[in-house]
Amino acid sequence: MNIYIGNLSYTVKESDLRQVMEDYGTVDSAKLIIDRDTNRSKGFAFVEMPIEAEAINAIKELDGAEYQGRQMVLKEATPKRSY
């Protein structure tokens, strides 16, 4: 399952995010979204967890939890729409 994680502190690194999510199960990938112009984090990321039950538990436990001074938003990522 692909998980959207929003409202992240701009100082969070992919390795930090992976470590937090691995407390809840197997993580295939953690991708922090970076602004091309400023080369800074945009404050959100996507984490891929292959076992759906672990991903659902991570969302349930971490949505609204405080991490590095901000309340994280976690939900199942939806595919990007094409217009």
Rank of each mutant, 00 (worst) to 15 (best):
E61R: 14
A53R: 15
M21Y: 05
A58H: 09
A55Y: 02
N2T: 07
I59D: 02
K13V: 04
T26F: 10
V20W: 06
S29Q: 12
A53D: 14
A65K: 15
S29D: 14
I5Y: 06
D23H: 09
P79G: 08
V27F: 09
S9N: 15
I3N: 05
F46D: 07
I51V: 15
Y24T: 02
E61W: 00
G69L: 12
I5G: 03
N7W: 00
N7S: 09
I34P: 08
Y10D: 06
I51C: 08
S29W: 01
R70Y: 07
Y10N: 11
R36Y: 10
A30P: 04
E48P: 03
L62D: 03
A77V: 01
L32D: 00
R70F: 07
Y24S: 03
K75V: 00
P79F: 04
Y83G: 10
I56P: 00
V27W: 10
K60I: 02
F44K: 09
Y10H: 13
I33P: 04
Q19R: 13
R18Q: 14
D28S: 14
N39D: 13
V27C: 11
M72A: 04
I33D: 01
G25T: 06
M21C: 13
D23L: 11
I5L: 10
D35Q: 08
D28F: 10
S82N: 12
N57Q: 14
V27T: 08
Y67H: 12
K60Y: 12
F44G: 04
E48A: 15
D23A: 11
L74N: 06
V20A: 04
